[in-house]
């Protein structure tokens, strides 16, 4: 055992460790801007970025863009989940479905979402639909892959136990395979959500007239590099908030897999 340290000391130490880097970065950034080392047109100073944020908050652009992006993200993700989870279950469980979809998925899945943008605009035009389509596509691939894996690799022991306890062959999928595959499915949802932000930003840059992606794109054209930075930081905040929410949801759903077991 290390000698006990006052709580205050360890608290300060943690504060320094967590806050040190971001505070230092911002200070260095501000310093470089003030000295002129960093010209405004390349990277505006932190103060200018905050001023930009205040400006778009006042004129309502922020609310419009944020709500457009969140709506597209939530809708796209919900559609992806509703489609990719059942298909993943079917592919993972039925060997014939696995075989018949094998080559199609082999070719389609590696296509990055960015490569779909032209087709999305061709099909859905400029606006919400294109963005939702790309978000859904970005989320669907990791969800599909992880659902297939989870269902396909369910421990055979659970199935044997269930059969000898009187489970009918048709009940095995719902009663045993699905709950057993749930950790893998939830991992897929989390990875899919992360992936979907890339789809959203690209779609809004090219295929929309609102949203945080559009904010980033439009500010470049308007030479407003401060708003560009605001847009990027917003994407970061949206991404990490949604990731934390998803992680919380999986922890709640997977209470059983916590590992505080004891021996004796």
């Amino acid at each position: 055992m290390a000698p006990a340290r006052p709580v205050v000391v360890s608290l300060l130490r943690n504060l320094l460790l967590f806050a040190g880097l971001p505070v230092g970065l911002i200070a260095a950034w501000q310093f470089a801007s003030q000295r002129g080392t960093l010209p405004d047109y390349l990277l505006p100073s932190p103060f200018q970025v905050v001023a930009g944020l205040v400006e778009i908050t006042r004129d309502g652009t922020l609310t419009t863009d944020l709500s457009a992006s969140i709506f597209r993200s939530v809708t796209g993700f919900a559609i992806a989940t509703a489609i990719a989870v059942p298909i993943g279950i079917a592919i993972g469980w039925f060997r014939s479905v696995r075989k018949s979809t094998y080559f199609t998925l082999l070719v389609l899945m590696p296509i990055p979402i960015t490569a779909w943008i032209s087709l999305a605009i061709l099909w859905f035009g400029i606006g919400d639909k294109s963005a939702i389509f790309l978000v859904a596509l970005g989320a669907a691939v990791p969800i599909l892959v992880n659902t297939i894996h989870g269902v396909e690799w369910v421990d055979k022991l659970f199935i044997e136990a269930a059969l000898t306890l009187g489970t009918g062959p048709r009940q095995i999928l719902w009663r045993i395979v699905l709950p057993a595959a749930m950790p893998s499915i939830l991992t897929g949802l989390r990875l899919g959500l992360r992936n979907s932000w890339a789809g959203l930003v690209v779609a809004e840059m090219i295929g929309a007239r609102s949203g945080v992606g559009y904010l980033i794109w439009d500010s470049r054209l308007m030479m407003r590099s401060d708003l560009m930075i605001v847009g990027m930081l917003l994407v970061g905040i949206l991404g990490s908030t949604s990731d934390q929410l998803m992680s919380l949801a999986s922890k709640l759903m997977l209470r059983w897999s916590r590992t505080d077991s004891h021996d004796g």
């Binding site: 044997e160 136990a161 269930a162 059969l163 000898t164 306890l165 009187g166 709950p179």
Partner: peptide, 19 residues
Amino acid sequence: RPSPERGLVFQEYALFPWM
């Protein structure tokens, strides 16, 4: 085929971890 008339206890327990 398997039947609940013949119960099986496994070396690896095979308990359902989500229950």
